[in-house]
Design a protein around this nucleic acid. Structure first.
Lengths: 259, 259
DNA sequence: CAGTAAAGGTTCATTATTTGAACCGTGTTA
DNA sequence: TAACACGGTTCAAATAATGAACCTTTACTG
């Protein structure tokens, strides 16, 4: 256990309903010794992540948080707004969400929001490169992303992950045509057994998709009655996130998703 | 030396021009051992203050910064915007700035922005309660703050700090009348020898001052040729900060400050 | 295409820092 | 006025941080 991490965890005690806390209460809530809590608070205060009200002696989140947040936005512009929208959608749908971005010619996971509703959840390794032929996000990208992705289909061998993975370029192109008409894509265990994925595009400035937003559902919960809720969330996220990244939806893009 | 603080200090390596840094470079810049740097980064990453790009392996400020900044705004609304405006003004004037807020019936320092231009600077203890009869901020508050402050003048003995401190209620009232006409106040070493203060009000919703913005200048630099610059900054800060806190300037308040 | 340099990351014995029970002084409450 | 809870301090004991050397991969160069 790192000392630094224990110190940082104290910051999690603060919330909108509990914005100022005294030393003893912090010690109680964190389970730390009062002396330990105080020393950690002093360290955080020196850095500016904590501020003490000199009259009430209570502690609050400090000004350094604002400074760091500004730096964050420089390094990852737009991603924070996206995370918030995804968080809201997660609470509504109750399933994990993934935002993927196209970097060069690979699809990368940029934001993961895991469900807090279920203990059975789909956990994706954030460092994985998303295979373009086997996932809902990948197929969606083929349908709405830059055309060179479709052109490269024949050049590289498409890897097989499960029995239902599409590996034949012609089959993939057929599926992609359907996706372009529907506006959304799905993958029924074609990457990992038991995982159903649903994805919609996020468009950039020239009406070409720069990434996708997808919802991953364990097979047990992938019942047809839940599909309308999922597609509905996906559709509004597609629109909101496109706006969030300063993009524009093509006029031909469907305004409603149908099963 | 706290371990937690050393870990946090690594966050200071990031800047708008250096938003993503690799492990070796971080170790070099911070002077820490590579192993130590890595362990600290891992701790920060677990908390979310650091994020690693899985493909380039570089590190960036993480999403927790945004979360904490939001909490900060709940605890201290408006103060961050104020700090930024003060920072800009400090760079222009080259002197330290203080924002004071009225809490109950005492004047408290809420934000301090120290000058980075001079090594001779006025350093105020942020935990001090600002005496209302001896400082530019206090006198300014008397002039534009709630009327009960003026009414209480006779009730309590006014403390003396230096030879020029005003302690006689009648003398204070006289000075306050002048301040109300001018829009700004000054104190020439009446709190601490060698320190000249200049202050202007920050108004709240009902056109009553909720605090003040002040500039502290060491006597050596308090020459008459610098007064226009100081008053000019003070005047625009008074307006900007009033807007920042959602307040309104009285219509009778002067739009220009004259010596 | 071998050879080199620098990158990210790991290991483990040594070292130094963190830890917490008890304590102090102060203000508030019953 | 006694009891309590608060913020903060102390110092021996215990635990966690440290860093030199090492491994592996990647990228460049003669």
């Amino acid at each position: 256990m790192g000392t630094a991490l224990n110190a940082l965890k104290m910051l999690d005690l603060f919330s909108s309903s509990l914005a100022e806390i005294g030393l003893s209460q912090i010690a109680r809530l964190s389970g730390l010794n009062k002396a330990t809590a105080l020393r950690h608070l002093r360290a955080l205060e020196e850095f500016g992540l904590i501020e003490q009200n000199p009259q009430s002696k209570t502690y609050t989140i400090g000004p350094a948080a604002v400074r760091l947040a500004a730096l964050r936005e420089i390094a990852r512009p737009g991603l924070e707004g996206a995370r918030q929208k995804m968080q809201a959608a997660m609470l509504e749908v109750g399933e994990s969400l993934h935002l993927t971005l196209l970097e060069k010619d690979t699809l990368q996971t940029a934001v993961v929001v895991e469900t807090t509703r279920h203990s059975v959840r789909v956990s994706l390794d954030p460092s994985e490169v998303i295979p373009i032929n086997a996932t809902a996000a990948g197929l969606c990208m083929l349908g709405f992303g830059p055309s060179y992705l479709r052109d490269h289909l024949d050049m590289e061998k498409q890897e097989r992950f499960t029995a239902t993975t599409l590996t034949d370029p012609d089959q993939i192109r057929e599926k992609v045509t359907l996706i372009q008409r529907a506006g959304w894509s799905n993958s029924n265990g074609s990457y990992e057994e038991g995982v159903f994925g649903f994805a919609a595009p996020i468009f950039g400035i020239s009406q070409v998709a720069l990434g996708t937003i997808s919802i991953a559902v364990p097979e047990i919960r992938a019942t047809s009655d839940r599909l309308p809720v999922i597609l509905n969330s996906l559709q509004s996220l597609s629109r909101d996130l496109t706006a969030n990244f300063g993009g524009q939806m093509p006029e031909t893009f469907p305004t409603e998703f149908h099963p």
